[in-house]
C-alpha cells in the first residue's frame, strides 16, 4: 500500500480546496517519536492517524467533491448524445431499460445481451459504446482518471453509484454464470504466484492487519468485505479526481507484483463478484472520499 500521509502532502491537487485540506491533515497528527512499549507505540500512532483521517473524511463527505462528477455523469446519462439520438435511457443495468435507482448495488450480474457477467463499470462502458457512440478503443486508451482528466465513463459510473446511496448491497447469485463468477473470483483471491508469492489473501485474509499504517480488511469476511465496496467510486484527495473499483483492483494487482489485468476483463469482474457478494446486506453510502 501507499504511505498515505507522506503522499498526501507531496501531490498537488487540481482542486485547491482538496489540496489545502490535505495539507492540514499532514500537519496535524504528530506520531509519538519516542517509542514507549512496542504495543503502546503501535496503538497510539494508529489511533492518532486513523482518527484524524476519519474526521477529515467525514467533513469532506458531508459536502463531497464527488458530486461534481455525479452531476457530469447525470448529464451524460440523461441527454440524447448518441449519433442516432441514442441515450442511456436504453441502457439496462439489470433492472430494466433506463432504470438507475438501485442498480449499482445489484452488480456484478449476468447480462444476457452480452452473455457476460458484468460489474457496474463494465456495463456502463458497454452501454456508452452501444448507445452513445463512444469507441471502446478510445476508452481503453485512458480507462482510469488522472490529474488531467476524469474520463466520461468514470463520471457515469459515479452517477450510477450515487443512485444507490443508502441501499443495501444485493448482488444476485441466481444465474449459474453468477455463481460461477463468484467461485472463479474466490479462486483468483486465493491464487499465490509472482516473485513475492502473494495472493490477495496474503494481505486480506486475516483480521486486524496493516501494511505500514494502512488497515487491511479481511475481505473473505462479511463485516470487512464491505470495505472493498464502500466509498467507491472515490474522490481521491491527493489529486482531485474520481477512481473506481476497476482502478482499485488494478492497483492491488500492481502491488501484488502481478502483471496488469486487462481493463474490463473477466478476471477483474469475477474478483469483484466474489468481494461484493461477500458484502451483501451492508448499506452503501454512495460515492466517497479516498486518501
Amino acid at each position: 500500500m501507499m504511505k498515505p500521509l507522506l503522499v498526501l502532502g507531496a501531490v498537488v491537487g487540481t482542486l485547491s480546496c482538496g489540496a489545502v485540506l490535505a495539507q492540514q491533515v499532514v500537519n496535524k497528527p504528530a506520531p509519538p517519536k519516542k517509542a514507549v512499549t512496542k504495543q503502546e507505540a503501535a496503538k497510539s500512532t494508529k489511533d492518532a492517524t486513523t482518527a484524524e483521517f476519519e474526521k477529515f473524511r467525514e467533513v469532506l463527505e458531508a459536502d463531497s467533491p464527488a458530486e461534481l462528477f455525479e452531476a457530469k455523469g447525470e448529464d451524460i446519462w440523461k441527454n440524447k448524445r448518441g449519433p442516432d439520438g441514442g441515450s442511456m435511457a436504453q441502457c439496462d443495468l439489470g433492472l430494466g431499460a433506463g432504470v438507475v435507482r438501485g442498480a449499482y448495488v445489484q452488480m456484478p450480474r449476468y447480462f444476457a445481451d452480452a452473455d457476460k457477467v458484468m460489474d457496474a463499470e463494465r456495463r456502463v462502458v458497454h452501454c456508452m459504446t452501444r448507445y452513445l457512440g463512444y469507441q471502446e478503443a478510445d476508452i481503453r486508451k485512458q480507462p482510469f482518471s488522472n490529474e488531467q482528466n476524469t474520463p466520461d465513463h468514470v463520471s457515469v459510473v459515479t452517477y450510477v453509484a450515487s443512485q444507490s446511496r443508502g441501499m443495501a448491497v444485493a448482488v444476485p447469485q441466481k444465474h449459474p454464470r453468477e455463481r460461477e463468477a463468484y467461485e472463479l473470483g474466490k479462486a483468483v483471491f486465493a491464487y499465490r504466484a509472482g516473485p513475492y508469492d502473494f495472493s490477495c489473501e496474503t494481505c486480506h485474509g486475516d483480521d486486524g492487519k496493516r501494511i505500514r499504517m494502512q488497515q487491511l480488511p479481511n475481505l473473505a469476511k462479511k463485516e470487512d468485505a464491505m470495505k472493498s465496496f464502500q466509498g467507491w467510486p472515490g474522490y481521491r484527495m491527493t489529486g482531485g479526481f474520481m477512481l473506481t473499483q476497476q482502478w482499485r483492483m488494478n492497483d492491488c494487482f500492481r502491488q501484488q507484483r502481478f502483471p496488469e489485468p486487462k481493463y474490463l476483463s473477466d478476471a477483474v469482474t469475477t474478483l469483484l463478484t466474489y468481494l461484493t457478494v461477500n458484502a451483501n446486506g451492508n448499506v452503501y453510502k454512495g460515492p466517497g472520499v479516498k486518501r
Partner: peptide, 10 residues
C-alpha cells in the same frame, strides 16, 4: 481460474 488469469493479464 488459472486459464482465465492467463487470458486476462498483459
Amino acid at each position: 481460474a488459472i486459464a482465465m488469469l492467463k487470458r486476462d493479464f498483459q
